[in-house]
Amino acid sequence: MDFFLQLLINGLCLGFLYGLSAMGFVMIFKSSSVLNFAHGELIALGAFLFLALVTWAGIPIPISFLLTLAVCFCFGFIVERFFLRPLIGEPLIFVIMLTVGLASMFKGLMLLIWGGNLHTYPDILPASLAIQLGPVTIPPVYIASLVIGLIFLSLFGLFFKYSSQGIYMRSVADNQRAALSLGVHVKRVFALSWAIASLVAGMSGIVLGIINGINVHNLSGIGLKVFPVVILGGLDSIGGAIIGGLIIGLLESFTGGYISTSLSEVVPFIVLVFILLIKPYGLFGLVEIERV
C-alpha cells in the first residue's frame, strides 16, 4: 500500500511536469499549427542554463532561476525570428521538418558542451521541508514543482483570458485571416508564442532537473513524450495537456513500479496508438464549431 501511494505521488508529480511541458507545445500548435519537434531541446536548454548559472557562474539560485527564464524567453524569440519566420507561407511540412532539424542541431550542440552524462544541481531545498503523509514522504522538490507549476498555470490562464495580447494570440489561433484584417500583428503573435513556450519549457526543464538530475538524452526524450500527452489531451487544449500529462505520468509510474522500468518508457507511446484508434481528437480536443 505504501508502495502504491509512493508510486501515485511520483506519478502525479511527473505527470504534472509532463503537462506543463506540453502546455508550451500546445501553445505553438494553437497559434501557428506547427508541431514542434524541438520542444525537448528547449526543455533541456532551460535545465542546463540553470546548471551553468548556479554551478559555473555561482549566481544565487532565485536570481539564476529568473535569469534562465528570461534567457529562454529571448531564445524562443530568436528561434522564431531566424528560423521559422522565413518559412511563413511555405507548406507546413517544411516547417515541421525544420523543427526536426533544429532538434537535432540543438541536441548535438548541448551534447558537445555538456556531454551525455548525468549532472545534478546542488541541493536547493532543505530536506526538512519534506511533508510526511502517513507512511509516505513527499520530497520538497515535488511540492516546490507543484507550487511553481500552479503559479505559472494560473498566470497563463489570466494572461490568455484577460490581457489584450493574450486575446490577440487566441484570435490568431482561431482565425488567422480575420485577425490579420483587424490589424493583429500575426508575426508578433507567433514570436510571442515561441517565446512563451520556450519559457515554460525552460521552467519545466529546471524542475525536472531538480527531481531526476539533468541529462541531455532524458530531457530531450521528454520533449517526445509530449506527443502522447497532447494526443491524449487533445492537440489544441491547454487544460487537456495538463490532464493528459497526469494520466501519462501515473501510467508510467505504475508500469515502472509493478511491471518493468523499460516498459514504462514505451507505455506512453502504446497509449498514443490506442488513443489515435479510439478517440482521435483526444479527450479534450475542441469539438469543431461548424456553421455552414
Binding site: F83, P86, L87, E90, F94, M97, L98, V100, G101, L102, A103, S104, M105, F106, K107, G108, L109, M110, L111, L112, G115, G116
Partner: peptide, 24 residues
C-alpha cells in the same frame, strides 16, 4: 571532448535547417 555522435547530430541538424531555409 570531441565525440563523434553529437557532432554528427549537430551537423545533420544544421544541414537540414540550411537546406530548408535556402534550397528547399
Amino acid at each position: 571532448a570531441l565525440t563523434m555522435a553529437p557532432l554528427r547530430e549537430f551537423v545533420f541538424g544544421l544541414a537540414i535547417v540550411l537546406f530548408i531555409l535556402f534550397e528547399p
